[in-house]
């Protein structure tokens, strides 16, 4: 039950977000053409491009209400502010969160700054080396000069080999 409480708090927030998304979908769909003249014929509501998004918007609101109901029953609305404040306070000491954020940031940097802007081999080697170095430390993996050199070698060779396979065998030019 103790692990269920934080989940219900998250459910309370996400269900409201999804309900809002459902409303946005319905509003956006209502602005699409519902009765159109095409080739001299009047086409009815059931051919409208807004029909399907409207149905989805309604379903999203209904299903989100179900999650919201469970969240309220599970006490998910209680102490939301306190939980958020506690979460913010513990950001500095949350080791898992740091590692997740670092992993997402490194992949994000490779996607938005590396690929397509910097030469493929350089971007990939730098990405691989930095990521492997950052996440290398573990109880059974000591940080030695030899280990760093091994990672550097992998980081240089892997993009070369993978790039060669993509271009030569799959006829895909590198970005």
């Amino acid at each position: 039950m103790s692990s269920e409480k934080p989940l219900r708090k998250a459910d309370f927030v996400t269900s409201i977000v999804f309900m809002l998304l459902g409303i946005v979908m319905i509003v956006a769909a209502s602005r699409m053409p519902w009765i159109v003249q095409s080739g001299g014929l009047q086409q009815d509501w059931y051919l409208s491009p807004g029909l399907f998004p409207t149905v989805l918007g309604v379903l999203l609101i209904i299903f989100s209400s179900n999650v919201l109901m469970h969240a309220v029953r599970g006490g998910g609305y209680r102490g939301l502010g306190r939980a958020a404040a506690h979460g913010l306070r513990s950001v500095g000491s949350n080791h898992d969160l740091h590692r997740m954020a670092m992993a997402a940031a490194l992949v994000g940097l490779y996607v938005f700054v590396g690929i397509g802007r910097v030469e493929y081999h350089i971007a990939s080697s730098v990405f691989l080396f930095v990521t492997m170095l950052v996440f290398h430390r573990a109880p059974d993996r000591p940080f030695t000069v030899r280990a760093v050199l091994k990672l550097a070698l992998i980081a240089v060779l892997a993009p070369l080999v993978i790039g060669y396979i993509f271009t030569e065998f799959f006829q895909v030019p590198m970005p």
Binding site: F127, L128, M132, F135, A138, I162, F170, P175
Partner: peptide
């Protein structure tokens, strides 16, 4: 170690997305 395998999987996934139509938007 996952710290060696997973960055390579990330790189291959990104190249794989790009290779579809050679479109960088697919990577985003």
């Amino acid at each position: 170690s996952p710290s060696i395998v997973l960055p390579m999987v990330a790189m291959i996934s990104i190249l794989g997305s790009y290779s579809l139509g050679l479109n960088i938007f697919n990577v985003y």
